[in-house]
């Protein structure tokens, strides 16, 4: 826990919709309670409805900051990862979500902020500043990001190449990146389905990687993205998952 600071909330005096979209948004007691309730319900439903299994939980670092990275083919992905983390980390865990999908509409933005604790990443107008703010928050506030470096949900369930943006958060830092593989989420709730189906989901957690020696430039970011992508692909091979195409294939829509 940080030392005491007589410092107003960073989002003080922002109107609700602006506040929900604000990257440096700070949660209060009510949001914390609602989020705990939300995550408890999600955990329960994932256990009962999807019989979720988490393998390699011991690989998760004991304390933030860290980034969890995984393949992305379903809205259940972030929920599956979030439910594998301790409930006490609820206010410190931020799934990074597509701004144009989760934050354009005020109601969706309120849900994304209050329930998911998501932070927006604007795909078309992201800009370096947005990513720089996210990197600063990760380092200063000791939080956890859930990130899907493919940039979008795969429509076929097969993983696309990881984008360099991931590297911008962790290059030249000691922040661990935890590669994960999610199996079954696409079958349980594919992008075209309106409601989830009761299919089994498995989450495999790999050992964390660190990138202190990766340079904080395009070359270093690329190396980070490739290394983590390799780790996820390796997990799929080890666990015999059929979600990955040959490395060159482009199956995901952008």
């Amino acid at each position: 826990m940080d030392d005491w600071e007589l410092k107003p909330a960073k989002d003080l005096n922002l109107p609700p919709h602006e506040r929900h979209k604000y990257i440096l948004r700070e949660a209060g007691l009510l949001e914390g309670i609602l989020r705990t309730v939300w995550w408890s319900v999600i955990r329960m439903s994932l256990r009962v409805y999807h019989r979720i299994e988490v393998h390699g939980r011991e690989n998760l670092p004991k304390t933030p900051p860290y980034i969890i990275v995984a393949n992305h083919s379903s809205h259940l992905d972030a929920l599956s990862i979030g439910s594998a983390l301790p409930l006490s980390f609820g206010n410190k865990t931020f799934p990074l979500a597509a701004g144009d999908l989760f934050f354009e509409n005020p109601a969706a933005a309120a849900f994304s902020a209050w329930a998911l604790n998501a932070l927006p990443v604007w795909r078309r107008r992201a800009g370096r500043q947005c990513l720089a703010d996210l990197r600063q928050r990760l380092l200063e506030e000791q939080c956890i990001y859930i990130l899907f470096p493919e940039g979008t949900r795969s429509r076929t369930g097969q993983m696309a190449a990881f984008r360099e943006g991931l590297g911008m958060f962790v290059a030249e830092t000691d922040v661990p990146v935890v590669p994960c593989l999610i199996e079954g989420a696409h079958a349980a709730w594919p992008p075209h389905a309106r409601v989830p189906r009761p299919k089994k989901i498995r989450l495999y957690v790999d050992e964390p990687c660190q990138f202190r020696d990766a340079t904080n430039n395009r070359k270093g970011w690329k190396r980070v993205a490739q290394t983590v992508e390799e780790a996820v692909r390796r997990l799929s091979v080890v666990h015999g998952c059929e979600i990955l195409p040959p490395k060159s294939a482009k199956n995901a829509e952008s």
Binding site: L6, P8, A9, G28
Partner: peptide, 11 residues
């Protein structure tokens, strides 16, 4: 709530 957000006590 407003008092805590202005003073940082909400943390």
């Amino acid at each position: 709530r407003e008092f805590t957000r202005a003073t940082g006590l909400f943390r």
